[in-house]
C-alpha cells in the first residue's frame, strides 16, 4: 500500500509542477513505483515538464467520467518503467472532477503504486480541494519571498482544517549569494515563521529552465544543483536520513584570492 502525497503552494509560479516532476522521477530512479497526477485542469503542464505531452490520449476527466479505464489513461514514462503520469484535461470543463472522484482515484492508485504524487493547481478553489481530497501527506513549496511564504501559511492553515496535518516544507529557488548579503530570507527565518518541518531546500538553478525546455527532469542530471536537492528530497520521502546540502558554495573573496595566489590547493 503506497502513500498519496499532494504538492501544493497556494501561490502560482513557485515551482509545484517542477517539484512534482523531479521528486516523482527521483523516486522512480530509486526503484519506487510512482504515479504523478496533474490536477490543474485547463492549465496542464506536468506533461510538458516530463516530456510526455505527445503521448496523451486520455486524461483525468476521461477517467473520472468513465470514458476510459484508468490503465488506459496512465502514460508510461520514457525513462523509468515504474513511473506513470495521469495528465489533466486541457479542453474540458474544470468542474468535471469532484473531491469524491479524487478520493476514489487516489485509493485505487495507491494499491498499485508506492507513491501517488498529486500536483495541485495554484489557488485555494475547487482544484485545490480536489487535489488534497485523497492525500495523506502534503508537501508545501515556497520561495523566499514574502508573498509566497504568506500563501504557504494560508495553505498550512487550510490543510489543518481539512485534516491533513504535518505538512513538510520545500524551500525552492533560494539564492545563497543573496541570503549571504542579507537580501533574502534564510531557511531559519522561514521555518521560524511557518513553524513546520523542512524536507528540502532547492537552490535557484538555471538548469531547471534547460531541463524544462528538454522535457527532462533536472533530477536526472548529476551536475545540476537543483537536481541534487531533489534527489535528496526523494530519498527523505522514502524515510532515509539525508543531511541538507551545503548551499554555501560561493567562495569568499579571501579564499579566492588565496587560491589564486597559490596559498591553497
Amino acid at each position: 500500500m503506497g502513500e498519496v502525497v499532494v504538492i501544493t503552494s497556494g501561490k502560482g509560479g513557485v515551482g509545484k509542477t517542477t517539484t512534482t516532476a523531479n521528486i516523482g522521477t527521483g523516486l522512480a530512479a530509486l526503484g519506487k513505483r510512482v504515479v504523478l497526477i496533474d490536477t490543474d485542469i485547463g492549465l496542464r503542464n506536468l506533461d510538458v515538464v516530463m516530456g510526455l505531452e505527445n503521448r496523451i490520449v486520455y486524461d483525468l476527466v476521461d477517467v473520472t467520467q468513465g470514458h476510459c479505464r484508468l490503465k488506459q489513461a496512465l502514460i508510461k514514462d520514457k525513462r523509468f518503467d515504474g513511473l506513470f503520469l495521469l495528465p489533466a484535461a486541457q479542453t474540458k470543463d474544470k468542474t468535471a472532477v469532484t473531491a469524491e472522484d479524487m478520493k476514489k482515484l487516489c485509493c485505487t492508485l495507491k494499491e498499485e503504486f508506492d507513491f501517488v504524487l498529486v500536483d495541485c493547481p495554484a489557488g485555494i478553489e475547487q482544484g485545490f480541494k480536489n487535489a488534497i481530497a485523497g492525500a495523506e501527506k502534503a508537501l508545501i513549496v515556497t520561495t523566499p519571498e514574502v508573498s509566497a511564504v504568506r500563501d504557504a501559511d494560508r495553505i498550512i492553515g487550510l490543510l489543518e482544517a481539512n485534516n491533513l496535518p504535518g505538512p513538510k516544507l520545500i524551500i525552492n529557488r533560494i539564492r545563497p549569494d543573496m541570503v549571504k548579503r542579507g537580501d533574502m530570507m534564510n531557511i531559519e527565518d522561514m521555518i521560524d515563521i511557518l513553524a513546520i518541518d523542512l524536507i528540502g531546500v532547492v537552490p535557484e538553478d538555471e538548469y531547471i529552465v534547460v531541463s524544462t525546455n528538454k522535457g527532462e527532469p533536472a533530477v536526472l542530471d548529476m551536475d545540476s544543483r537543483a537536481g541534487q536537492a531533489y534527489r535528496n528530497i526523494a530519498k527523505r520521502l522514502t524515510g532515509a536520513e539525508v543531511p541538507l546540502i551545503n548551499l554555501d558554495y560561493e567562495e569568499g573573496i579571501v579564499n579566492k584570492l588565496k587560491r589564486l595566489l597559490g596559498f591553497k590547493g
Binding site: 516530456g51 505527445n54 503521448r55 496523451i56 490520449v57 520514457k78
Partner: peptide
C-alpha cells in the same frame, strides 16, 4: 502535430 489520429490509428511526434 503533437499527436495525429486518423480513425483508430494514433501517431505522435518523435521524441
Amino acid at each position: 502535430p503533437t499527436q495525429l489520429r486518423i480513425a483508430n490509428f494514433i501517431t505522435r511526434a518523435p521524441d
